[in-house]
C-alpha cells in the first residue's frame, strides 16, 4: 500500500492516509518511544574554557591555557586552572565544558593513585594517558553522551622523547609538534607552526616560552572568550611545572581610533 522508502520501517497505520495522498514529508510520523526523553545526555557545554596551545621544544613540551571559564558570553570564573598534571611526566590541558574536565581530572587522579598503590615500579607516561583518554572520549561519544572537551596531552615518554597529542569529544586523536585547540587553531596554530618550521634547530626553552606568550597575547586580542591571565606548564626530564598566572603586556591606544570603541559616537 505504501511502499515508498521514506516510510519503510515505520509502523503501518492504515487509518491515516492509506492511499498516500499527502506529500511525503507531511505524512504523520508515529511518536517515538515514550521514554525516549527520560534520559538526558549532555547536548551542549555550559561553563566553558577556550583554547589550549602546546608545542614541543628542545627539553620537552610546553602547554598554555588562560584562567577563564565562561558562561556563554559572560566571563564567569576568572581564576580557573585548565592545566592539570597527571603522574610525574604528563600534563593535560582542557578546553570545553569545565565540569566534564573536572570529572576527567578525578578519573585520571584515581587511575594514578591505583597505579601508585600497586608499587610495582610501573609508571604511566603521556602515551598511556593519551590512549586512556582517547578510549574514554570515544566510548562516551559512542554512547551519544560525550565529555564536551578538547584535550591536549603533553609529556616526556619513558624513552626520553617528548610527546604532544590531542583528543576531543568525538574521540578524534592526533599527534603533532604543535597543537592549538578551539579558536587557537585559527590564531595560534599558524604562529606556532611558523616558529617550529622556520627554525632549523629545536626551539630552546626561552624561544618556546616567547612564542607561547606571543600566541596567548594574540588570542587575548582576538578571542572574545579569553582572558589576559594564563598559565604555562612545561614537562622536561626534571618533571612537571606549572607557572603562576602570567599577564601579557597589551597596548590599546590604537583602539581609540576605532569607531564604536573610542571617543567617536558616530
Amino acid at each position: 500500500m505504501d511502499h515508498h522508502p521514506t516510510n519503510w520501517g515505520r509502523p503501518r497505520d492504515d487509518r491515516v492516509d492509506p492511499y498516500g495522498t499527502f506529500p511525503i514529508h507531511a505524512r504523520p510520523r508515529p511518536k517515538e518511544d515514550a521514554f525516549g526523553d527520560a534520559v538526558k545526555h549532555t547536548q551542549q557545554p555550559i561553563v566553558t574554557g577556550s583554547s589550549v596551545i602546546g608545542l614541543k621544544y628542545k627539553d620537552g613540551v610546553m602547554l598554555a591555557a588562560d584562567n577563564l571559564a565562561s558562561y556563554g558570553s559572560l566571563a564567569r570564573y576568572k581564576d580557573v586552572q585548565r592545566l592539570h598534571p597527571v603522574g610525574t611526566s604528563t600534563i593535560l590541558g582542557a578546553g570545553g565544558d569545565m565540569s566534564d574536565f573536572q570529572y576527567i581530572q578525578h578519573t585520571l587522579d584515581s587511575l594514578i593513585i591505583e597505579e601508585f598503590t600497586y608499587d610495582d615500579g610501573n609508571k604511566l607516561g603521556p602515551t598511556e594517558i593519551y590512549q586512556y583518554l582517547s578510549r574514554i572520549m570515544y566510548n562516551r561519544r559512542s554512547k551519544m553522551n560525550p565529555l564536551w572537551n578538547s584535550l591536549v596531552v603533553g609529556g616526556i615518554k619513558s624513552d626520553g622523547e617528548s610527546f604532544l597529542g590531542y583528543v576531543d569529544l568525538l574521540g578524534t586523536t592526533y599527534q603533532s609538534p604543535t597543537i592549538a585547540t578551539g579558536f587557537g587553531s585559527y590564531i595560534a596554530q599558524p604562529l606556532l607552526r611558523n616558529a617550529v618550521d622556520e627554525h632549523p634547530e629545536p626551539l630552546t626553552e626561552e624561544e618556546a616560552l616567547s612564542i607561547i606568550q606571543k600566541c596567548m597575547k594574540t588570542l587575548f586580542y582576538r578571542d572574545a572568550r579569553s582572558l589576559n591571565k594564563y598559565q604555562v606548564a612545561k614537562v622536561t626530564a626534571e618533571g612537571v611545572t606549572i607557572s603562576d598566572p602570567i599577564e601579557a603586556p597589551t597596548v590599546w591606544g590604537f583602539a581609540e581610533g576605532i569607531r564604536g570603541y573610542g571617543a567617536q559616537t558616530q
Binding site: H106, D109, S110, I113, E114, T117
Partner: peptide, 13 residues
C-alpha cells in the same frame, strides 16, 4: 582499605 579510600575520594573529592 584501598576501595574505601577510593570511594571516599569519589564522594568527597
Amino acid at each position: 582499605a584501598r576501595d574505601e579510600s577510593q570511594s571516599s575520594r569519589d564522594f568527597y573529592r
